[in-house]
Design a protein around this nucleic acid. Structure first.
Lengths: 224, 224
DNA sequence: TATGATTCTATTGTATACAAAATACAAGTA
DNA sequence: TACTTGTATTTTGTATACAATAGAATCATA
């Protein structure tokens, strides 16, 4: 789960990464980016061939992804990409809302002015892309904004849980922003966040974040 | 992460469990129960021998435990039992507090009367053991009370996150209850929970739960 | 034709074998 | 003595081989 942070802390030239980690990363991306659709069986033989590794590291990687909740391993019957029910998504958003509420409160309490400015810079950049209706970079910056907020909370467990849930939801949240009107609603939320950050009002920031996530639910719940 | 629930949902006679799952369970228990101390290297050869399995399922199990945050795999240098810093514990308790606050709110909102009664029954049983100062059964019932509460929230993600953090903290929380005075404090919290459940006051239940967990921090923070 | 037993095949689970890397150790040098 | 440098040993990483299981296909029978 903690992969991102540890990689970052390692000098980039010496990329000591074991094969099953690389495989886990690859397959994770395949799932998150939708190349492996939810519900589809993971064809060990085919993917092993495609990735050019043997079954051993591949299966170890699968176990990791299973623990992360991205795949389900059915004993003797192969692994499938986890399919999220509307219940699943609701439960994740409920938890994520409280996680980010806490992130907001802690970040205001603990982050330095420079760090808060960094968040605001991300926000401004997002808004610029919104002005151009440039969806993909907006989406990416949005992810980054929330991740960075979690980091600045100074709470590693929070960051880990947030990152895990975010990964599971990634595809679905992208869907949620497809309609212009819901997009503008999300943008309005983000403006409120920026205000709360400038005011250094942790409670308010937390409330806006939580509300923002539950609004995501309203946007996606009909797509099931 | 989801191990508990799936096991429960499977008829006990047909224990279709793959070897690496059993191994993961065994090693998890060894860690939680303190037979493998934090920081110690996990001797693959020795444990494989002791468990009577080959390295393949054992290593797969290790990957699972790594994703659960119980062990750290250092590439080419073996796995070690994760050692929690005081920072780690604080961050887990902060998150757990908000998770259980949510659990309290949702459970009051969603659980049936029979289910609430079940929680109250667990509570009464705990109190009986406290009256006898019988620590171990009290401790086990306490775990069960919190787990059951998370289940009754009707939110699977919540249950999963709670169960994972709880597993990581298990040993430490046991330490926290070693002193008579802090134990009585915990018991007082639990009486408040029972009252909130009877009153069906979700906010209050959530507050008490969160406070209870942060009080745990006060109890253990000096042991580092 | 439909049903059900029975093989056959494909896939998964586990063990072992081999390769690569890290660590421990020893000998030599300053 | 302290510090290299090289070698041996242990440990880890990966591939392959073999075993067990599930699912598909075949055939027989009603």
């Amino acid at each position: 789960m903690d992969r991102a942070a540890t990689d970052v802390n390692r000098p980039t030239l010496i990329k000591k990464q074991t094969l099953h980690d690389q495989v886990a990363d690859s397959v994770r991306d395949l799932i998150i980016e939708g190349y492996l659709e939810p519900g589809t069986r993971i064809d060990e033989t085919a993917l092993v061939e495609q990735l050019g590794v043997s079954r051993t590291p591949f299966r170890e990687a699968l176990r990791t992804l299973a623990a992360e909740g991205l795949v389900i391993i059915r004993p003797s019957k192969g692994a499938v990409v986890r399919k999220l029910s509307s219940q699943d998504v609701l439960s994740m958003l409920e938890v994520l809302a409280e996680i980010e509420r806490l992130a907001g409160k802690l970040t205001i309490k603990r982050a330095s002015q420079a760090e808060l400015d960094e968040l605001l810079a991300l926000h401004d950049e997002m808004m610029a892309y919104y002005a151009d209706r440039d969806r993909l970079p907006y989406y990416k910056l949005n992810q980054k904004f929330h991740s960075r907020l979690a980091e600045l909370s100074g709470n590693d467990t929070l960051r880990e849980v947030q990152s895990n849930i975010q990964a599971r939801l990634k595809r679905i949240r992208f869907i949620g922003n497809r309609h212009e009107d819901s997009w503008s609603g999300a943008v309005a939320d983000h403006e409120q966040m920026a205000i709360a950050i400038r005011e250094k009002d942790g409670e308010k920031l937390g409330d806006v974040l939580a509300g923002h996530l539950m609004a995501t639910w309203d946007r996606v719940k009909n797509t099931f």
